[in-house]
Amino acid sequence: MITPEHEQAAEGFNAGEVIIGHVSNTAHDQAIIHLPTLFGIDFSITKHVLMIWLMAAFVFITVTWAVRKRLKNDTLVPTGFGNALEAVVQYIRDAIVLPNVGPKYLQVWTPLILTFFFFIVSCNAMGLIPLFDILGVLDRFLFHTEHHSMLNHIIHGGTTATGNYNVTAGLAVVTFFAIIIAGSRAHGFLGHWKNLVPHGLAWWVYIILIPIEIVAMFVKPFALTMRLAANMTGGHVAILVILSFVFIFTGLFHSALAGIGVGALVSVPLAVGISALEIIVVLVQAYVFTLLSAVFIGMAINVHH
């Protein structure tokens, strides 16, 4: 039943604030577990930190379980989940790592690229599974915990850890060092740095080229950082904006019926469509991150000028 209080609540609806609250990390004063600040870094465990740990544990447990199950059976053909896993692993090895990195260092860099792919794809996908929203509904109608309970803090904040620039920057830092290590392993430490610029040019060209190459070295991981986080946040923001039309129209026309009409005719069908797109985005963004990491590592190993 829609009461005047509901309509009043809709009028005070601030779409921007609600959307930011749903996609961003929890504020530091609302952290799930408070930890002291060391060296100017707040070590408190927020929602995104929790999500990283959960997804890392999830990937570790499921992949280990599938591989162990496969090793225990003597058959050559894996079944069920193991089969699907093997298909993905083989695809990434043969279609992403092999053409970019080359056969010599294939076994060295495939594990890193695979780890990237599975971690990013599960972090991205977690953002589409409304696990914490269901928990929120249960809390609202069943548990009735108080406002500052731990459960309440776990419910709030975005669930897509890869939508946080700090998380993707962390992943890109791994790529940054992987590029340097790959180049150093293939050409020696000094050889890698010499390979950054083409050989045999006039001396004044190097004055221009060396700074450009140094900047380019940092730009590549930056591209990875921004692309992944922006894409993951963007889709969620689009869905939330479309769904908040319901509340905006309710407030605008002072009638819950207007909100329900807009919701049924426009918002929900559109949101469903964008959610379907998001499923593709989840896979494509994880794929692009791994592909670009493989390309960058390959560029450090197979140097052509």
Partner: peptide
Amino acid sequence: GPAASASYT
């Protein structure tokens, strides 16, 4: 792959 990397860069 290389084209995507160049455009993103």
